[in-house]
Design a protein around this nucleic acid. Structure first.
Length: 218
DNA sequence: ACTGTTAGCGACATTACATCA
DNA sequence: GTTGATGTAATGTCGCTAACA
């Protein structure tokens, strides 16, 4: 199945373990042009690349055919943990290939429909639920990064506005002192009074003073 | 048309494990 | 070898929506 949004150029890039097949055997339509950079990553990864639905190196099992309809119906959100050893759950580390493939797919289209999920799962020899979880976590990471960036941006805005505020206060102080003929230090107390009483209603952004505590919207 | 039930899905918080310094 | 920090796969829960009876 051709993934939505992908153009069918039949141009592929193979990277990683020699036994790894980003294009599953079932889909024998390999790209016409394919740059294969296969190499042995490391013994462990090689094992995990040679996914025969049992990752010995990682101690993680992949269920096979009977798991195919996993994504279609599930009683809960959990992945079958029958392959975990003992009490603790074993955690799968996705290979670089799997991660980058998912990453690329996410970059193109962050949404995940059932068809895409199943296709990716099949292509990467993962369970549909794993693909689903990966996308969920990926969205969460994106959101977190965005929040951090927003926070950083707001900090800078705040800093800039504070500087501007200080500058304007100084300017106002100078203007007042020029007008009244008083020294800046003399006019400072009056200025502080003025500024201290002026606030902004966070809701309607109407300027108000502490005397008129209730703006029209409160 | 309204209501209750169910399934599917995403967001979110949290846990648990792997890796690295 | 141990430990703490970090990244992330996986889990559990909640709320929303659509389909259906």
């Amino acid at each position: 199945m051709e993934e939505e949004g992908y153009c069918n150029t039949r141009l592929g890039l193979g990277l990683g373990g020699e036994n790894y097949a980003p294009w599953p055997q079932k889909q024998m339509e390999k790209p016409v042009v394919r740059l294969d950079l296969s190499f042995t990553l490391c013994p462990d990864q090689e094992d995990s690349m040679n996914i025969d639905h049992h990752d010995k190196a990682e101690g993680t099992c992949f269920k096979s055919e009977e798991d195919e309809d996993y994504g279609n119906k599930r009683s809960d959100h959990s992945i079958d943990n029958s392959c975990t050893y003992g009490t603790g759950r074993k955690k799968l580390r996705l290979t670089k290939d799997q991660s980058s493939y998912l990453e690329e797919s996410f970059r193109r289209h962050p949404a995940l429909n059932p068809a895409k999920k199943n296709a990716l799962a099949e292509q990467l020899n993962l369970k549909p639920r794993q693909v689903e979880v990966w996308f969920q976590n990926r969205r969460a990471r994106t959101k977190l990064k965005q929040t951090e960036a927003d926070c950083e941006f707001l900090k800078k805005c705040c800093e800039s506005l504070s500087n501007e505020n200080r500058r304007l206060k100084r300017e106002l102080q100078e203007l007042r002192s020029q007008r009244t003929g008083r020294s800046p230090s003399q006019s400072h107390s009056q200025l502080a009074k003025d500024i201290g009483t002026i606030t902004k209603c966070p809701s309607c952004e109407e300027s108000t003073t502490t005397d008129q505590k209730n703006c029209s919207r409160f």
